[in-house]
Simulated scan of single mutants.
Amino acid sequence: MPNPSGRPVYHPAGHDEQLRAVLQDLKAGRWVSTRNLLDSTPDWGLWTQRTQILAAAVAGSDVIKAWQAEEPHSAAASVLHTRVLVERTLRAHRAGHRHTNELWREAAAACGSAIDAFPEDPVPWVCLLALAQLDKGQRWDEHRVPAPEPMLFPGPWHLLAEADKRDPGNREAYHRMLQFAYTRRPGGPLTEAVNFAHWASGSAYAGSALHVLPLYVRVERYRKDGGAEHALDLHWIGEDATRSALRALHLWFEHALPAATSLLDLSHLAHALWGAHQFQDATRVFEALDPFYTVAPWTYRTRSPGDADAAAEAFMQARTRCLSAARDPG
């Protein structure tokens, strides 16, 4: 059981010990251990997760370009290069950078090249999904394809289908689609996002991280409604909220492997169970998280969203409450 007084730590690799070691090397400009790790990564889900974390860590450096120069035919180097270009484009977009469109074109071209070179890999399709959210107003035909169900929105469904074909239920692909749903109605209601999350989780297999998707939409709704500014927080203890949290617990958490599990998914589940007063079950998730935490969703329980220290405090308070309840259920 985690120490309730122990301060949690953040690390993007979480419980993936091999990835933690490789990240340190890659940030220092050494890529051989990254190549070896990716060459031995056993499945597309973990490949997707590892390449995303690695690229985000070195998006500001040229270490992947140096690797490509040494091994121009490396699939791992090519995919990471594509990942880096997409990450730079998304960062430029968020910052309102004037060269965003140029970066976007370069990243999209890299995705196309990776698809041609490595047709079995879902990551280039996931990257195209990530770029789709930049298409404000859905000007491109490929971003307004009719949905597979009448209650869903037109969007880049063929991109999701291509990723899904290569790795059914790919976690990042569905999260990218959820982000696309948010951008369709900025500042508007989240009905489309809610429908998508329930559609995706409703058909997911046991052990799929897609069962956590509805919890992300609930956090987004809470954030938009003012979060910690609510005098009375009834958002998390309703029947629907509790049902979604317990469904994710039983259909995802109880089947998941810790090293391949997203810390964000664990954090959202712990947060939802705590908010629903399911303290015993929340304790199990806090134990699985130990010693890590993530800023979201805890940051929305503070009056300073984005402040990592305030988020850590909110996390520790929730964890202490759950651990206390677990020790003394009466």
Rank of each mutant, 00 (worst) to 15 (best):
G188H: 10
L103H: 12
D39Q: 11
L289H: 09
V194N: 10
K165V: 02
F180A: 07
A77V: 04
L249Y: 15
L38M: 12
A209L: 08
A325K: 01
Q24L: 13
L234Q: 10
E142R: 15
V217E: 05
Y216W: 13
A163L: 04
A248T: 04
W252L: 05
A245K: 03
M316W: 01
H11D: 15
R94D: 15
A325S: 02
P154C: 09
D240I: 00
Q18R: 10
G112V: 00
A95M: 14
W199D: 12
R223N: 06
L80S: 09
A259S: 11
S203C: 02
E17R: 06
Q49M: 14
D141N: 11
W67Y: 10
P148Q: 02
R247T: 15
E70A: 15
D281I: 00
A109P: 00
F286W: 15
W140E: 12
Y205V: 12
V219R: 10
S61P: 03
R247W: 03
V58T: 13
V219M: 13
P148W: 02
L128E: 09
Y174N: 10
D135F: 05
N3P: 03
P154R: 08
V9E: 15
D265E: 05
T261K: 08
A57H: 04
L131G: 04
L266V: 00
P291M: 09
L38R: 03
G14V: 02
W125N: 08
A21Q: 13
Q317I: 12
W274D: 11
R247H: 10
H73C: 03
N170A: 13
S74F: 06
H211E: 07
Q138F: 04
A241V: 01
V145I: 14
A282V: 01
N170P: 04
E17W: 00
F253Q: 05
V145N: 09
A228R: 10
A181V: 03
A311F: 03
P258G: 04
A248H: 02
A161P: 01
P146D: 11
G14N: 03
T191E: 12
F180Q: 06
A109K: 09
L249D: 07
A147S: 13
I64M: 11
F292G: 07
R284M: 11
G207N: 10
H11F: 05
L26Y: 01
Q317F: 06
A296K: 12
K136S: 11
F286E: 07
V217D: 05
W252H: 13
T299F: 06
L152R: 08
Y174Q: 02
H271K: 06
Y216V: 11
Q179T: 10
L23F: 06
T183I: 07
G226H: 03
Q133D: 10
R303E: 06
H268F: 08
A270T: 00
A59C: 10
